[in-house]
Design a protein around this nucleic acid. Structure first.
Lengths: 195, 195
DNA sequence: AAAAACATACCGACTGGTCGGTATGTTTAT
DNA sequence: ATAAACATACCGACCAGTCGGTATGTTTTT
């Protein structure tokens, strides 16, 4: 085990960071706090990351990779099934109950302000937009979706809905039966798009 | 003009606060910053507001009142028209291009963490949920919407979509033709819900 | 009418404490 | 032994909130 301990420390720091950021927010969560929760010193922190922002970017990167792998698994299926699968999986990806969810809100908020973080966020995000637009276009080509649908806009609508469901789930977890709302939204989407 | 100057000062402070909060975020925006932008002293600030949080809550209150008046104007119309009007107005309310929009993201994020702010946010929010659910229920009773629709869930879906559209509009204003996406989303919603 | 008493609005220096980051020393693995 | 991994002590900047004081009315008294 060469640098195993080192990697464990790094993992502990990332784990502590995501929790502190989620609970207190990026600004309010201090490096000292994160170190304490990770059980390491500040020296270790700055040995592994050049700055506080760097941890944040590392977490963002990990989150984007997680979503990507979720999308990748959907990309295997054929198009009509993909579309159904997508509408099923989308809320699951975004709304999986997890105490770290406020972290993602934090990502977006920071992204809207910090140029560096914005670039790291928006590029993959646009990639998702295109992905959904393509899915809709394929559905139309196959005849399973209304031909007059605008693929770009419809893809955006699906993404918007997912984002909205996710956000509400974060802010008011017990405010509704989100499982049910997710299913209802998929019904409405399918009815509204299917030919 | 006795306390006119006083009210002007207060207005300047609120105006400066909403801008600083939107640009820098609640935590990063300092009271000094806000005072400087408002052109008044820190003493004036704490003369008008007991704390930094109090300004935030005052802004939140103003925002909720704005939305409420928008909904109120819709409440006049008869139900089927109301439903169409609603689907038209909703994105307009949330997505009106305005440099202060990130402020609302800030509201939500703070709400997810600060109990006081959460209470001020979530109560009106649940009120909107009920409002939309009732609208859908009325639409079903009138026969204009699918009878098997769950009003609660469907109302949530509409709200989610609005929230998602709004959020994306904030984060990536030039990432799509949001006008078009808004229209498309309304088409899909109507198709998916109409009987 | 004018002065005294009071009230409101505002100023800006200051405080106690926090934070991100650094400098420097110690331990651990190879 | 030597370099990477980690710890400790510390620095300068900043920040929310306080406080003594001023300036500008407003009300009361004479």
């Amino acid at each position: 085990m060469p640098q195993q301990r080192s990697e464990e420390t790094r993992a502990h720091l990332l784990d502590a960071a995501v929790r502190r950021f989620a609970i207190s927010g990026y600004n309010a969560a201090s490096v000292d706090e994160i170190c304490a929760e990770a059980g390491v010193s500040k020296g270790a922190f700055y040995h592994h990351f050049p700055s506080k922002q760097a941890v944040f970017l590392a977490l963002l990167d990990g989150w984007l990779k997680t979503i990507d792998s979720g999308l990748e698994s959907m990309r295997q299926a054929t198009v009509p099934e993909t579309f159904v699968e997508m509408t099923r999986l989308l809320p699951a990806i975004f709304a999986a109950a997890d105490e770290r969810l406020p972290m993602f809100l934090e990502f977006w908020l920071q992204a809207s302000r910090d140029e560096k973080i914005w670039e790291a966020t928006i590029a993959p995000y646009r990639h998702y937009q295109e992905y959904f637009a393509r899915l809709v276009a394929d559905g139309i080509a196959e005849g399973s979706l209304k031909p007059e649908t605008d693929p770009q806009a419809a893809g955006q609508v699906i993404l918007s809905l997912a984002v909205g469901l996710f956000l509400q789930g974060v802010l008011d977890p017990h405010g509704a039966d989100w499982q049910k709302v997710g299913e209802e939204s998929m019904k409405i989407l399918m009815n509204g798009l299917a030919s």
